[in-house]
Amino acid sequence: MTDAPHLIEVRNLVKRFPIGGGLFSRSHKVVHAVSDVSFHIARGETLSLVGESGCGKSTVGKCLARLIPLTEGEITLDGQRIDGLSRSQMKPVRKRLNVVFQDPFSSLNPRMTVEDLVAEPLRSHGMARTRAERHARVGDLLEKVGLAREAMARMPHQFSGGQRQRICIARALASEPDIIICDEAVSALDVSVQAQIINLLMDLQKDLGLALLFISHDLAVVEHMSDRIAVMYLGRIMEIADRESLFRHPRHPYTRALLSAVPLPDPEADRDRAVLTGDVPSPIDPPSGCFFRTRCPMATDRCAAEVPALRDMGAGHMSACHYAEDV
């Protein structure tokens, strides 16, 4: 095919963390945080990663942002490999790819003014040469995220959680990136403020043609935000599909269980819940075969023996279940 490469392509990403054992320990235990994950993100698209805590969402985000090295795999940005780049080679890449984290307090240096915080990426990427230019640009960015220009003279602690998240977003937008990775960026906010930030992200995306990798454990928010969704479990992608297809016709028993566990804000909703029993197994010693089989209501002997491949069920709806047809 002669298709242009997607903005982001991740192929067979693996991330293992060696753990335990001090200097002289013989234990070679590793956490299998991410195992063989592949996906792409098109320009201007929102791909969400969902799944229970510890399933590897943040690790994928950090590998993509090159905040941590990958163990195996390839990542390309507009077709160019970025997984092996050195610190200095990464600099132009960093300009195009930014991250917004959950906790807007710890990600803002409390001793810097908002102006310095937002101007920092402008300076480091040489985007506004003079002080006056930077000042004007910071003001524009603050307005873009719904804050007053005057906010730039103040310190982060003088703002509420929602406003601090706006500052983080302004900072992430400063270098005019192609993609922003939002790691639980709205999870700590009250619903009323969460709605403000979600609307802001969606507006910015439309105006600027931004792509988003939206990491969240909140399925209702994900449904609202995403073009496509990848459902992760214990470091693997279980299912990946566009929004309509995934939420209307989940093709993996894990996705089905997750959806049925979400409490609905409607006391008259009539639903039979498939409550998952037990806990996610340890990523140090994941089960053989399908990682989900220890909690799966459909599991058979085959599930313990064979790792189910991520198969296309039609129109790009991929499921990693031997019995995806029967889900």
């Binding site: 619903v191 709605a195 209702a220 449904e223 939420f247 209307r248």
Partner: peptide, 10 residues
């Protein structure tokens, strides 16, 4: 203000 499952489909 709460996003609801199913509400943005279609």
């Amino acid at each position: 203000a709460v996003p609801r499952l199913g509400s943005s489909l279609g």
